Simulated scan of single mutants.
Amino acid sequence: MPPEPHPTTLIGSVQRAMRLLEAVAAREQGAPAKQLAREAGLALPTAYHLLRTLAHEGYLRREKGLFVLGEAAERLSSSGAQQKRRSTMNDALAQWRDSIGVPVYYATYRDGEIEVICVADSPASPAVEEWADFRETGHAHAIGQCLLSQLDEKARKDHLDRYPVQSITPYTVRDSESLRRRLERAGRLEPVIERQEYALGTVCAAIPLTVGSCASTMAISLPSHQADRLLPAVRQLQGEIGRLLGTLAVSISI
């Protein structure tokens, strides 16, 4: 078994490669190897070897003698921005969970599917257990009903053709026509209220969000014996969202 490379050699190579990546990122139109070597403080043969390696791995690409960022580097940048947005959203949900005293959910409708992105709950205020797939039972819970109410007729029909209305509890809406009438009555900015339609012993409310290009919602849930808290709590959440709308604007697309 060959000996492992000396750690300082590996670290030095990574440092030099990172300096080159930073130099390329600073040049929107790209730059030639000689210029990048000079800006990174590297000998040209060393720089050229690293540039070729980075290009081979997809972190850079060469166009007409100029090196520009490649797809792999762009994916890293996108992933980092997405993680930052998700962290911002998680922090906001945790803050609202603590100030209102309820579990808080954020969900979107993306690529034809209901997707719960973030949930903030606590041992004292646990989230609803997903005992039936949220994606398949959107007609039965406040999150799904709120998202479906924001779709156009064609997209809504497509969703319900794939996930037909079915009884989840004795309180679930009975058929697609009854659901359609309910969704059409939903106010554009009004909370959607659901009582024990998805989970017995639980009431939920969801708020439609108009920030971003896809249908989104914030929701809360409570035990049914605390149903009198539901409407005041969701109104409080609406106020909190309004105050932090600037933060949400950069986080909503996660």
Score class of each variant (00 low, 15 high):
residue 204 C to Y: 14
residue 129 E to V: 05
residue 108 T to S: 14
residue 233 A to F: 08
residue 231 L to A: 00
residue 84 K to W: 08
residue 235 R to F: 12
residue 136 E to R: 15
residue 149 S to D: 02
residue 101 G to I: 06
residue 159 H to K: 13
residue 164 P to T: 04
residue 79 S to Y: 07
residue 15 Q to C: 00
residue 15 Q to V: 04
residue 69 L to W: 05
residue 220 I to S: 03
residue 7 P to D: 09
residue 250 V to A: 12
residue 111 D to V: 00
residue 238 Q to N: 13
residue 206 A to G: 03
residue 189 L to H: 13
residue 76 L to W: 15
residue 160 L to Y: 15
residue 14 V to D: 06
residue 13 S to L: 09
residue 169 T to Y: 06
residue 211 V to N: 06
residue 68 V to E: 02
residue 59 Y to F: 14
residue 176 S to W: 08
residue 23 A to E: 05
residue 10 L to G: 08
residue 254 I to Y: 10
residue 225 H to K: 04
residue 160 L to E: 04
residue 169 T to K: 09
residue 9 T to F: 08
residue 123 P to Q: 03
residue 98 D to G: 14
residue 114 I to V: 09
residue 41 G to I: 00
residue 12 G to L: 13
residue 212 G to H: 03
residue 118 C to K: 00
residue 53 T to V: 03
residue 84 K to A: 13
residue 192 V to C: 12
residue 64 K to Q: 06
residue 199 A to W: 03
residue 108 T to D: 05
residue 57 E to H: 15
residue 93 L to V: 09
residue 104 V to P: 05
residue 166 Q to A: 11
residue 80 G to Y: 01
residue 24 V to Q: 04
residue 51 L to G: 12
residue 78 S to R: 08
residue 221 S to L: 08
residue 130 E to N: 15
residue 80 G to L: 05
residue 122 S to Q: 11
residue 209 L to A: 01
residue 204 C to G: 13
residue 203 V to K: 07
residue 240 E to S: 15
residue 248 L to Y: 12
residue 75 R to S: 07
residue 35 Q to G: 11
residue 183 L to H: 10
residue 82 Q to N: 13
residue 40 A to K: 04
residue 221 S to V: 00
residue 163 Y to D: 06
residue 235 R to I: 12
residue 252 I to M: 06
residue 129 E to N: 07
residue 41 G to N: 03
residue 74 E to T: 14
residue 48 Y to Q: 01
residue 111 D to P: 04
residue 179 L to H: 00
residue 189 L to T: 15
residue 94 A to T: 00
residue 198 Y to C: 01
residue 167 S to D: 10
residue 219 A to N: 00
residue 75 R to H: 11
residue 116 V to E: 15
residue 44 L to W: 14
residue 192 V to M: 10
residue 79 S to E: 02
residue 27 R to Q: 14
residue 69 L to Y: 12
residue 136 E to T: 11
residue 154 K to C: 00
residue 3 P to F: 06
residue 214 C to N: 06
residue 136 E to P: 14
residue 139 H to N: 05
residue 213 S to C: 14
residue 82 Q to I: 09
residue 49 H to R: 15
residue 55 A to S: 02
residue 97 R to E: 02
residue 107 A to W: 01
residue 159 H to N: 14
residue 56 H to F: 07
residue 63 E to S: 04
residue 107 A to R: 01
residue 122 S to Y: 09
residue 230 L to C: 00
residue 149 S to H: 04
residue 216 S to A: 14
residue 243 R to M: 15
residue 13 S to K: 13
residue 46 T to N: 13
residue 66 L to T: 08
residue 197 E to C: 12
residue 60 L to F: 13
residue 55 A to H: 03
residue 22 E to K: 15
residue 83 Q to D: 10
